[in-house]
Design a protein around this nucleic acid. Structure first.
Ligand SMILES: [Mn+2]
Ligand SMILES: [Mn+2]
Ligand SMILES: [Zn+2]
Ligand SMILES: [Zn+2]
Lengths: 140, 140
DNA sequence: TATTTATTGATAATGATTCCTATTAACAAT
DNA sequence: ATTGTTAATAGGAATCATTATCAATAAATA
């Protein structure tokens, strides 16, 4: 997804385009990190020092509503993922680094569950926890 | 797992067996709910009014360390699951109810990922979010 | 029964997130 | 280009689940 398209679709829906929103969206679109709200704030601040943490939270909310970012929780903290296609997040129990893994078998499982269960399924979230390549030696 | 076995194993490791711990373990072993710490506290209190929330938190921590309960996060709140075998938790987006689904294909996927990735995998957690049978009519 | 010390309970501290509100600024209309 | 409307922002307070602190209590063991 391109920044320009997102900007246009937001404008279409009557949202205003602000430098803060552009800065936040631009960062999310170009990082493979899965940053927390605070990390987003720190990074965006370097270029646009007038951005407040409140605004970061509200912008992330807006982007989540528009399904432009995905939100996952790690250790009681929200982490944001610009990759919105269904995938598996590998979370490092030591450093908190998150890596994406695509696994097509996921879709099959989800479809099966959706049929089997009484629930009206909206979305799935699959995480695996362990130690990343950098950390696993420390914990052998 | 039986209460008696758990009690013995805790005692073996030098932990003291208190009425509070027994009450908490007993409740978790016999419910299919996925209660929050606060819910555990409320329920246990009816039988053992001398149980504090602090103790509930500390006991849940202990049980998690011993891998006797599993912890998942829903809406920034921890929920505890006495079912520790790998399974899928269906979370209702409206009422917060959680239902278990067994899916043997999960193990295959996890094994595959463990090989494919650089991570040393410790555990997986798979959730699906939607509306339960009671709530889905309201949201059509 | 006395001793040891893990556990408890009450409450303060923490920290991520949400709420509040005066001020600012995007943008449509003039 | 200017104005008016009102969405958006900044920043500080409030919220609330969880963790930390520590004096009092009670399991375990001899
Ligand atoms: Mn991801
Ligand atoms: Mn479960
Ligand atoms: Zn790591
Ligand atoms: Zn429901």
């Amino acid at each position: 997804m391109q920044l320009e398209q997102i900007v246009m679709s937001l404008r279409d829906e009557g949202h205003r385009i602000t430098p803060q929103r552009i800065a936040i969206m631009d960062y999310l679109l170009h990082t493979k990190d899965h940053p927390s709200a605070d990390q987003v704030h720190s990074v965006v601040r370097k270029r646009y020092p007038m951005t407040s943490l409140s605004t970061v939270y509200k912008t992330l909310d807006l982007l989540r509503e528009k399904k432009l970012v995905n939100e996952i929780e790690v250790w009681g903290e929200a982490r944001f993922d610009a990759q919105v296609d269904e995938h598996i997040n590998l979370v490092c129990l030591n450093c908190g680094n998150i890596e994406d893994i695509d696994e097509k078998a996921l879709k099959n499982i989800q479809a099966k569950i959706a049929k089997k269960s009484d629930y009206l399924i909206i979305k799935g979230s699959f995480e695996m926890h362990g130690y990343c390549s950098k950390c696993k030696t420390e914990f052998q």
